[in-house]
Design a protein around this nucleic acid. Sequence first.
DNA 1: TTGCTCCTCACGTCACGTGAGGTGGC
DNA 2: TTGCTCCTCACGTCACGTGAGGTGGC
Lengths: 264, 264
Amino acid sequence: MAGTSQSALRYYDKIGLFSPAARGANNYRYYTPLQLITLKFIIVLADLGIPLTKIKELNSHRTPINIIKLLLWQESRLDREMHRLRTAYSIIHKYRDNIQNGLFANEEDICVEVADDSNECRVIFGPENDFRGSVGFYAPFIRFCESAKRNRINLNYPVGGYHRSVKAFLNAPGQPDRFISLDPMGDAKIPDGRYLVGYVRGYYGEFGDLPQRMASYAEKHNLELKGAVYVTYLLDEVTMTKPDMYLAKVAVGLSRQSMASENI
Amino acid sequence: MAGTSQSALRYYDKIGLFSPAARGANNYRYYTPLQLITLKFIIVLADLGIPLTKIKELNSHRTPINIIKLLLWQESRLDREMHRLRTAYSIIHKYRDNIQNGLFANEEDICVEVADDSNECRVIFGPENDFRGSVGFYAPFIRFCESAKRNRINLNYPVGGYHRSVKAFLNAPGQPDRFISLDPMGDAKIPDGRYLVGYVRGYYGEFGDLPQRMASYAEKHNLELKGAVYVTYLLDEVTMTKPDMYLAKVAVGLSRQSMASENI
DNA sequence: TTGCTCCTCACGTCACGTGAGGTGGC
DNA sequence: TTGCTCCTCACGTCACGTGAGGTGGC
């Protein structure tokens, strides 16, 4: 028989969805040509992902209207499922991107990068953090996670940090003003412009001498650090086994009149 | 704990994917803060749809390269899954469309319809049929189904018939020159132009007096029937319980110089 | 006797959720 | 004694696929 397997037919028989018209003396299942038509109906709906119980329900009251209702119901299920898959796809893409950038990054180097349409990075901002009385960033981070849940933000995207100003970053590099989710569907984006970029390996929120190195680099090359600072982890707990091997990328905004990048 | 359930943690423990660092005297599971990091890694990958066995495998050789490999593997799985869902979606849409048209169709009426971009209907043609020696259209239809399987055509879309010429249709309306699959992703389409359209209720391949009625209607209204004929079933075995209640739509090509539709 | 096709029954799949029944410390 | 939170089993989920072991007719 075309379209389905023996075991499927036995299963349909067992659950009472579709039974043979007759059993032979040898106990074989015999189906009539007309039953093949019913079977086609079942296979089509089952292939659309409609549960067999729904198909069985339909069997007793099968009208065009009820079919349309069932199809609409399945459409909305498919909508949700496709949204889930697209989200998973986009998270995977983001991680692959980060990992590849992390593997190719020269950790010692500090350099100028330009953000524009070609490498647009979208984000979602969390609420403003409050570090009063907290050691490390765990308490505000947990608050961020809770607010994310309320706002239906997917926490599986990598998380980064945002500092309102260079001064704030140099002051307390481990205490961002806000956490950000690197969701490509986010409504905000890291603004176009030029950034001074450095990398650092180590635990979350620990930046070693990178802030100073970046500041002195800027001074030496006559660059004016200005605007916001974005910290993203290219290699994080998903990628690396040891927390001291995480790799952060720090991007510090540069003013427009800073020396052009080709001079560096 | 955030991000997962008790029963999931017990399950991870059971399959050896992620076990607590220690058990209390009361046999409680106790996790260290560092373990929460490992857990986050597991949850992220599991939420992407990666099977737990794969995550477990990864645990022993976790490197950025291996993560990228795993993510690429999952990407291709998601690709296939999304393709399946999109196909299901499009089949559902086609059926809904057909059913709605079928419910609103005036069965007695014959009228002129215009096919253009706004109601484009794409199809896939099956091989040429050979009706020699066969009664009804079952043998050629089964050949069509077999060729469809070979050519990876999805047979869950509604199937219709194509007659090369009006003469062929009037001669043997139940024996189309080719079967067609109403796949919206098909590479062919029902050509733009004007069609004389009629409906008929009944078994597959039975058209009653519709061909004659359409011919005499054309003569009376000075319309020249010309070109191909397309038969599509708006209500078929998926929609209707009784085979004598199927509803076919017959579209017969009209020459350009036929009387304009606004005169009818 | 050997193949062949069908049969029934039981178990596995995958990642948990859901009771039932029990425990330890307040 | 009553709640509370944890525990361990065991069973169900969904649509079959896969053997194991048996049967009936050529």
